[in-house]
Amino acid sequence: MKGLKLYAILYLIFLYAPIFLLPLFAFNSSTIIAFPLQSFTTQWFSALADIPEMHKAVLNSLRIAATSAVLATSFGIFAAMASTRYRFPAQKGLMGFIMLPLVLPEIIVAVSLLVVIVNAGFSTGAWSVIAGHTLICTPFAIAILQSAFASLDPALEEAAFDLGETPASTFRLVTLPLVMPGIISALLISFTISMDEFIIAFFLTGADPTLPVYLFSMLRFPKLLPAVMALGTLLVLASVVLLTIAEYFRRRGIKRAGAKDTGGFL
């Protein structure tokens, strides 16, 4: 029992130590990332305001992540509906094929996309990163949405159709509200994956770097490192807020549907 407890504590430290170190150094006045800590400061946070390239990278990343998330989730909805609502030949094989990017090394996706784009005579840019991110996010969106659609009783859609609605209005009035928690989850997960993603962005981003690519390039300048820590702190905060919102919607969805709560992030 004691051993297990120790294991759990070590495990948690291993998981969260890096995240707790971020704010520690973000508020530390020394430019060197090392112990002992010196005095408390918020100067690194105010310094963030003076790095326009970073602002550009953040905005670029937000745009790419939002677009990729919407695209991946839309594709995910179609694929999830196709796999749970219809029966067609080679369905299993086709679904497996769509899920393939889940296990494909990102470096392979990145290099092959680059080769295709360059050979086709296009130049890389935000659009090509969006294409790559949509590709890798879609399987996650499908996996989440598939379970949302599968847990929806098909009789509900039939009942709406039976009561005179068209397939389109049935989708809007019944299907969409009931799978909404799944859609929000898919959007948030895709958004997070795209925000984080480095390899594809590194190869395909062209002249405007995304935030991870920009941060990577900044590591060469130790002077800027505390500012990176400050940015990291803000990003962690944003993730926590995002996850909390997602969880709030998920729970509200379950409560409204009157189902029993199983799983969830928080």
Binding site: F161, P177, A257, G258, A259
Partner: peptide
């Protein structure tokens, strides 16, 4: 004539009450 245009209505075995 599709189901939404037929003069029939159905009570489903699971009742299919819209939970939302």
């Amino acid at each position: 004539v599709p189901a939404n245009k037929r003069p029939t209505n159905m009570v489903f075995q699971s009742y299919a009450i819209f939970p939302h």
